[in-house]
Every structure is written in C-alpha cells, then in structure tokens.
Design a protein around this nucleic acid. Structure first.
Lengths: 142, 142
DNA sequence: TTCTTGACTTAGAACCATTCTAATTTTAAG
DNA sequence: CTTAAAATTAGAATGGTTCTAAGTCAAGAA
C-alpha cells in the first residue's frame, strides 16, 4: 500500500494525523531495512529536534494498531518495524544483525485463521542464520 | 531426546556437568510450559538457595550452544526456553501470555539449509493470537 | 595426596530498551 | 474564542539481560 493511501486512512475521527506520526510512517516508507526504534529516533531527531522517544514508541504502537506497520521481534531485546504488512518471512543474520525479507512459497499457515482451536492474528515466521554477505566474508578471509 | 541422554552428552572434555546445569536441564525437562528465565530462577532458588541469576543465564546459553535446548523470543523483551529442540511452531496468546506448541504439517522450510543464498541455522516460526481458553472465556462473559 | 590452572558460580552493579508519569502543548468541536 | 480531549514532551522508573570482580570448585599434573 502506498504512503498516501496509508496517511489518508489516518485522517478519521478518533485519530489525528500529527506531524510526528506522518514523519514516522514516512521514515518507514523510505527505509525498508527493518529499523530499530533507536534508528528511527535518531534519524527523526535530526529533522525534529524536539521529538521525544516516548512519541516514537507511542506512534509505532498507534500505527501498528491501525494495521499500517508490522512489528518484528526477531532480535533479542530490540524492536524493529516494517512498513510492509503483507505476510512474508524475515531472515536475521546473527553476525551482521541485518534483517532480510525472504519469500517462502507454499506456507501452510498463509490463509489459516485458526489452529488447534487458537485464533491466529499474526504470523511471525523468523529464520536465523548467516547471510550471504557474511558467508562471503568468511570465505574471503581464508 | 531423553534427559539421561542429554546429560550424558555433557560429560565430555571441555565442559563440566555441574549441579546447576543438571538442575536447569532437569527443570526444562519437567516443565514443558516454555518457562521464562525468571520462572526458572525462582523455581531453582527453592532447591538451591545460593543459585545466582547469572548462572541461570550462563547455563541456558551453554545448553543452547550445545544444542540441548531451544531459545524462544516470541514475547517482547522476555526470553523463554524449550526442552524440545525438534523444529515445531509456537503459538503465543497475547491475552494470557501462554506459549503453546503447535504442529504444522508441510512447512516448505523444514528441510531447507539455504534460502536466497543465506545459510539457515534456526527456524523460529511464531504465531500470535488468542488461545482457545481465552476465546472461551470471552464467550462465557457475554 | 597436594598443587596448579582453568572453568564455573556468585552477588551485585551496570546497562539499555521500554514503559510510565506529570506537565505542557496542540487539536477538534462547540 | 473556549473548552475538553488527545498528543507530545522530558525525564524518571522499571525490568530483563549482561558485565565484573571475587571466590569456589574440579580435573589433571606432580
């Protein structure tokens, strides 16, 4: 979904499209690297020197609850966020700490609403390993 | 794999099977509820009043590196551990905070070693939602 | 057995990501 | 313009995890 479309969806009664919210969503739109909260905060701090970390957290929670962004908890004790909400797998390289999107065809959970009587609300298919770049570095260093 | 088998594997040179390590592994063997570090610590504290939290963390790391237990990072900012290391999906209920094992047949990643040039070392297929018990409670309260 | 060395454990401090709080500012509605 | 609700802010508080330095234990060497 485009940025304008998502922004438009926020201008409904009960919610306000503030400059801060606009900025956070726009940042995620432009940076598809699955940034951490810290990264988002530091970048926005340059534009909006008064912005507070609490606002970043509040805004990310707000955007998530409106289904506009996705939370990623792939790395120990650190939150990351993704502009793309369509279900897809994430790969985390424990060497360089990068998160990659990966496409997995034929996931049997893709369309499921329930499993074992539990209601499925969100899929978080995480894969941990060493990414192609780090594998290459290891080869080069031999 | 049985408890005795795993314990036996620890009595090799370079590593020591201490009382604490034995206790942690045994606790996980007996408690398949995907306990948090805090839960493990509190329970073992009753038996071994001198045991330290650092030991719990060290031991869990140690057991994980020996492939004897599995780390679960399904809940924001909290580690959980699982005696079972065979790949299986986990379901987290955001209402009651319980983690359930679920069996998913036909996962296309099950046997894969690589994806997009990245080396797969661990699968963490997490599902978030509302569990059957919490769904039932909601129904009852209407 | 005793000695020595390295591995392990301990208590508590430090760290750091996240959440909370209270005050202030902004927005929307009347 | 006024008012009330919502949003933002700075900084404190929280809480899970990691680090540190000191002490303890275990295994191999003599």
């Amino acid at each position: 979904m485009g940025l304008k479309e998502k922004l438009a969806g926020l201008n409904k009664k009960g919610s306000t499209l503030t400059i801060q919210r606009h900025a956070v969503l726009e940042y995620l739109y432009e940076n598809r690297t699955h940034p951490t909260v810290e990264e988002i905060y530091h970048s926005l701090k340059e534009k909006f020197s008064a912005i507070s970390k609490a606002t970043i957290y509040n805004t990310l929670e707000f955007l998530k609850n409106h289904g506009l962004i996705q939370e990623i908890t792939i790395e120990r004790g650190k939150l990351r966020f993704d502009y793309e909400v369509k279900p897809h797998h994430h790969f985390f390289c424990h060497k360089c700490k990068h998160v990659y999107d990966v496409n997995v065809e034929g996931c049997p959970l893709a369309e499921k609403k329930m499993i074992d009587g539990h209601k499925i609300e969100e899929l978080r298919p995480y894969i941990i390993g060493t990414c192609s770049k780090c594998l290459q570095k290891k080869r080069d260093s031999r």
